[in-house]
Design a binder for these strands. Structure first.
Length: 281
DNA sequence: GCCCAGGGATGCG
DNA sequence: CGCATCCATGGG
C-alpha cells in the first residue's frame, strides 16, 4: 500500500488496508454519499471527492493534510489486524472488515452527531444531521458545512425538534448552550479520565456516547463503546443473555486493551452488516 | 400495529 | 450503587 500526497489529492496504490465503503459504512461517520465507485465525504466545512478501483484510491480535496489525518493514513493497520486476528472471537470479523480504518473526525462535530445517535437508527441520524447542515450551516456552493458552535447556539429547542431530534432536542439545546470553543480545545489535550468525566457531564452524553466521542473525535483507541449490536455480539459469543452494558464494556476493554476501539469496529461492522443485508438495505 | 434503532435521564429502593 | 421506566419517531 503506497500513499502519495499531492497538492490537491492523495493517491493510494494497492490499498490492501483501506476499503472506502467499509470505512464509511461502519457507523463512525454520517456525512457522506456514495455513487458507484465514488464517494463524497464531509467534515466540518471540508469536503473530499473519492474515486477508486481495485488497485487505486484517489482522494481529491483542498484539504490534503486534513483528510490524510482524517483517514488515519499514517497508521499501519496490517499490524493491528495481525494481532486481533489471533483472537478467536474476532478473526472472522477482522477478515470481513479488513479495509476498515478508524476516522479521526472533528471533536465538536462528533459530540453533536453522537448525541443525536442515542437510541436512534443510522438513516434517521443522517437525516437529522443533514437537516442541521442545510438549515444552519454555511452554504459552500456544492454542499453545506456542519454548523459551527456559534451557529448552533442560535438554534432553539423547537428548531431542533424540526430537525427530527425528538426528545434529544432539549438535551442538544442544553449542551450547545453550555459548550464553548475553549471546552473543546481543552478536551483534546486532557487526560483520558478527564475527557471521560467532562463528556459525561454533557446532557445527552452517557457512557456509550462518551466512548464514541473519544474513539472517533479524540483519537482515544483503548475504549469500547457498547451499543445494542455489541450487546448482541457479546451475548452471542459468550452464550449469555445480559443487558448489563457496564459489565460488557469492562470485560471487552480488559480483553482487547489498547486495541479495544479497533476490535469494537470490526465487531460492529461484521454483525450489523450481515444482519442488515439479510433484511435488505 | 409492533419492534427496533450505535441510549440517556430520572426516580426509587 | 443497581434497576425500571420513560422518552420521539421513522424504518422494517
Amino acid at each position: 500500500m503506497k500513499i502519495t500526497k499531492g497538492i490537491d489529492k492523495i493517491i493510494i496504490e494497492q490499498p490492501k488496508d483501506f476499503d472506502v465503503l467499509q470505512t464509511l459504512n461502519c457507523g463512525q461517520i454520517f456525512r457522506f454519499s456514495i455513487d458507484g465507485n465514488s464517494a463524497k465525504v464531509y467534515s466540518m466545512d471540508k469536503c473530499a471527492n473519492i474515486y477508486w478501483d481495485s488497485d487505486k484510491i484517489e482522494i481529491n480535496t483542498d484539504s490534503v493534510d486534513y483528510f490524510y489525518n482524517f483517514f488515519d493514513l499514517d497508521r499501519d493497520y496490517s499490524q493491528i489486524k495481525k494481532v486481533l486476528s489471533k483472537d478467536k472471537f474476532l478473526s472472522s470479523a477482522v477478515e470481513y472488515g479488513s479495509g476498515i480504518r478508524i476516522i479521526n473526525n472533528d471533536a465538536y462535530e462528533i459530540i453533536i452527531s453522537f448525541i443525536i445517535s442515542a437510541n436512534n437508527n443510522i438513516k434517521r441520524i443522517k437525516n437529522s444531521i443533514e437537516y442541521l447542515c442545510r438549515h444552519f450551516g454555511k452554504n459552500m456552493g456544492n454542499y453545506f458545512a456542519f454548523p459551527t458552535l456559534a451557529e448552533l447556539k442560535k438554534v432553539s429547542i423547537k428548531q431542533f425538534q424540526e430537525a427530527n431530534l425528538g426528545y434529544r432536542a432539549e438535551q442538544m439545546y442544553c449542551t450547545v448552550q453550555r459548550l464553548t470553543e475553549q471546552d473543546i480545545e481543552k478536551l483534546k489535550s486532557a487526560e483520558k479520565d478527564e475527557q471521560y468525566k467532562f463528556l459525561l457531564s454533557l446532557k445527552g452524553v452517557g457512557e456509550k456516547v462518551a466512548n464514541c466521542i473519544m474513539l472517533f473525535g479524540l483519537g482515544v483507541k483503548d475504549v469500547f463503546p457498547v451499543d445494542t449490536w455489541i450487546n448482541k455480539v457479546y451475548n452471542d459469543l459468550t452464550n449469555s443473555n445480559t443487558t448489563d452494558r457496564k459489565k460488557i464494556t469492562q470485560e471487552l476493554t480488559a480483553r482487547y486493551k489498547d486495541y479495544s476501539g479497533y476490535a469494537q469496529q470490526y465487531f460492529f461492522y461484521y454483525y450489523r452488516d450481515n444482519k442488515i443485508s439479510k433484511i435488505s438495505r
